[in-house]
Design a binder for these strands. Structure first.
Length: 446
DNA sequence: AAAAAAC
């Protein structure tokens, strides 16, 4: 099957070829003809399946005819996060360079007036997060009565984030006669109910999880203590020892922890940027840009970056914290091993996390190996000596007395290891339980 | 338990 058989316009086919794509993915192959036939589509697909192009490409073909009127967008795409919205906008740039379409990105955290000016000029494609869209609507800067196509992307995530009331409200502002595309990764009952209210006689298109996800990602667990300093030390050791390292996303459960860890890594001369929802939008965009361009090797992030972000070449994902929700784990590690590339996902597990790990193993239906289990026992002399942290860090509540390094024996099952650790009589972590490949130092550009 | 999203 080739793109030329799907009914796309010549301009769009030329753009696809220029982008270097040869073959449609299963979701594109199944959805594009229905979208072009103006059917409603219920798409069940994860990110990484080519879902975005499955609606961008036929939209470009459809929109070649007709023209937008001031303040009346012709199509509307709703996304749960600002970064995802921006990413969809980039797709229109990429495939739409032969078309003269007006694309507007309507998200929070950036100038309202610039967006307003764009709306006034008339937009063919409006890509929005719900809050800012409703803001424009309430101020009377936007009418949805000429909108022919509504796309709800990442519906299950919108549900998680409590956006469904906003989405339902927006749905009522768009004419009943519109075409609707509804994408979700999972189909819990609540999402099914919402899909039923939004869609009329939809075609159901379902693709399995990208086979790439499980197969190309090496997953590992690494045991650590509960002390934050020790966790950070474990992380630094994992990064320095990572095999085939190119870059990494490091996930934390809390925004505060993202900021803290980012500071600490920068102090340790790592080339790191941070991304979470409390940063202003320019900082968020700058961080993501730097990471995408390879200027920053480490991206420390909250779950704002867990789903959908498409960075084709991430070699490692580290979970600094075990996610509380097992499906977040799946989304986080899916940031690596993309587009057929190999990836490694290492989760740092403190004693209190065993329940969360069990839930993840249940969901993924696999036992994730502990790094210790495949250990090649290294002698003390083999372990690289880690640079002593700079003074500032030691003075920030992380004082520890200098002690002679002592090898620590690993409990056979770290999840059941006694909670009270006998004594902390080493300044450097014990590396004797690590496989040899993790002990090889890797230099990271500062 | 937390993240995300509007001024």
């Amino acid at each position: 099957m080739s793109f030329s058989q799907l009914g796309l316009s010549a301009k769009v086919l030329a753009a696809i070829e220029a982008a270097g794509y040869k073959q449609p993915t299963p979701i594109q192959e199944q959805a594009i003809p229905h979208v072009l036939a103006r059917r409603d589509v219920l798409g069940i697909a994860q990110t990484g399946t080519g879902k975005t192009a499955a609606f961008v490409l036929p939209m470009l073909t459809q929109l070649e005819q007709g023209r937008a009127r001031a303040r009346m967008p012709r199509t509307l795409i709703l996304e749960p996060t600002r970064e995802l919205a921006a990413q969809v906008a980039e797709n229109f740039e990429k495939y739409g360079k032969n078309s003269k379409l007006n694309v507007a990105l309507i998200i929070g955290g950036v100038s309202f007036d610039d967006q307003d000016a764009k709306l006034l000029r008339g937009v063919d494609v409006l890509i929005a997060t719900p809050g800012r869209l409703l803001d424009h609507f309430e101020r009377g800067r936007l009418l949805l009565s000429a909108c022919e196509l509504l796309i709800i992307d990442e519906a299950d995530r919108m549900l998680d984030m409590g956006f469904i009331p906003d989405i339902e409200r927006i749905g009522k502002l768009v004419p009943f006669t519109r075409q609707t595309l509804f994408f979700t990764a999972t189909m819990p009952p609540e999402i099914q109910r919402i899909a039923d209210t939004f869609l009329h006689n939809p075609v159901r298109v379902e693709v399995s999880r990208p086979a790439t996800a499980a197969a190309t990602i090496t997953q590992l667990l690494c045991h650590t203590g509960r002390d934050p300093h020790e966790k950070r030390e474990t992380l630094r050791r994992l990064i320095r020892g990572a095999e085939n390292f190119k870059n990494a996303i490091i996930f934390c459960n809390r925004k505060r922890e993202v900021a803290l860890l980012h500071k600490s890594l920068v102090r340790h001369k790592f080339n790191a940027v941070a991304l979470h929802g409390d940063l202003d939008q320019s900082a968020r965009t700058a961080a993501l840009d730097a990471f995408r361009k390879g200027e920053a090797k480490l991206l420390i992030a909250s779950d704002v970056a867990a789903r959908g972000l498409d960075i084709p070449d991430v070699s490692h994902v580290f979970n600094f914290d075990v996610p509380h929700h097992a499906d977040d784990y799946v989304h986080r590690i899916g940031r690596t091993g993309r587009a057929g590339k190999l990836g490694t996902a290492i989760t740092i597990v403190a004693p209190a996390d065993s329940k969360s790990v069990a839930a993840i193993e249940k969901l993924t239906n696999m036992t994730i190996p502990w790094m210790e289990k495949s250990a090649t026992v290294a002698t003390e002399g083999d372990a690289p000596v880690e640079a002593r942290p700079p003074r500032e860090e030691r003075s920030r509540g992380e004082h520890r007395r200098d002690r002679t390094p002592q090898p620590r024996r690993q409990h056979p099952d770290p999840a059941r290891a006694p909670r009270s650790r006998p004594q902390r009589d080493h300044d450097e972590p014990d590396m004797s339980h690590l496989p040899a490949f993790l002990l090889r130092p890797v230099s990271i550009k500062a």
